[in-house]
């Protein structure tokens, strides 16, 4: 039986696909986008999350964990500042967790969305979950598209809707800002387009990185070449760094956070792609 760590459920997710949805966040991602706002979704291993305010430095956590922070520390903290980031679920266990709310989601034209982290980094688990939900609800996957062709095709079969991120078309820049090669991402994107499955493309507008004229033009052209007619643009959220401290890391993006995202909807329109700018600070 497969299992995966889930680090969050968002009930009543409003922007993760059609209708009212529950979004399931799988832990672990092969990319390291500099602007990632979900650092607890990056590592595949479970980790301790520590709330920043309220620590009295009493040391109870380290004592219980034998000098380290671990599951024993979580229970020991008298101020309840610690928790494990992920909880392990099997597909059956997940279905149990969702079963009661599925009728509500279905009545409201929604369903379940798998996000992360990178859900495709758990292809077997993801596939089994999707297969279990088949016929029970509408299934969406939110992905960076980074995975082998074979598992991608496999998951594609069991998914009703994709939210597909495109970040940078230039391979070198992609590598530099996300740590990964974008070849499989673009390949899988073409496979998705050819499949005829409904999807929405999402483009994060990172100031000076992805929102450049060059990159937006490249993406718009790529969409146009693949017959894609619309896209969602996500302005950079300046709260992106707020969770890093709780996983014991520092947020150090290599771009200027204070610059406001450029949406440049004109570029998309010139390629026949209708852009929708999601909520957030931006200039046109």
């Amino acid at each position: 039986m497969t299992a995966a760590l889930i680090f969050s459920f968002e009930e009543f997710a409003l922007h993760d696909g059609p209708g009212m949805r529950v979004t399931v966040f799988l832990k672990g991602c092969p990319l390291r986008c500099e602007w990632c706002h979900n650092p607890e979704g990056q590592r595949f291993e479970n980790e301790i999350i520590k709330s920043q305010a309220g620590c009295e430095n009493c040391g109870a956590c380290l004592k219980a964990g034998g000098g380290r922070l671990n599951e024993k520390s979580v229970r020991a903290c008298p101020n309840r500042l610690l928790r494990m980031s992920g909880e392990s679920y099997t597909p059956e266990h997940l279905l149990e967790r969702l079963r009661g709310v599925l009728p509500i989601l279905n009545d409201a034209g929604g369903g379940v969305t798998f996000s992360g982290g990178e859900p495709l980094a758990h292809p077997d688990f993801l596939y089994e979950c999707l297969a279990l939900l088949e016929g029970r609800t509408h299934r969406a996957v939110q992905t960076s598209g980074y995975c082998e062709e074979e598992p991608f095709r496999h998951v594609l079969d069991q998914t009703d809707f994709f939210l597909y991120d495109l970040k940078l078309l230039d391979p070198a820049l992609h590598k530099r800002y996300t740590g990964a090669d974008n070849t499989p991402i673009l390949r899988n994107f073409r496979i998705l387009c050819d499949s005829g499955k409904p999807f929405i493309t999402r483009i994060p507008l990172i100031p000076g990185v992805t929102d450049t004229e060059q990159n937006l033009t490249d993406i718009a052209r790529f969409l146009c070449d693949n017959g894609v007619k619309n896209a969602e643009l996500l302005p950079y959220n300046r709260l992106a760094g707020s969770k890093y401290a709780s996983v014991g890391r520092r947020y150090a993006p290599g771009f200027d956070e204070t610059v406001i995202s450029q949406a440049r909807t004109d570029i998309f329109r010139s390629f026949g792609v209708e852009p929708k700018v999601l909520w957030g600070d931006h200039v046109d």
């Binding site: 009543f12 409003l14 009212m20 509500i104 009545d107």
Partner: peptide
């Protein structure tokens, strides 16, 4: 309050209420 910021959000909150009533 951010849930209410667009029409889509408002519609979904309305659906939430309807679900409660139906249940």
């Amino acid at each position: 309050d951010s849930v209410f910021r667009d029409e889509e959000g408002i519609e979904k909150v309305a659906q939430l209420v309807m679900a409660f009533i139906r249940l």
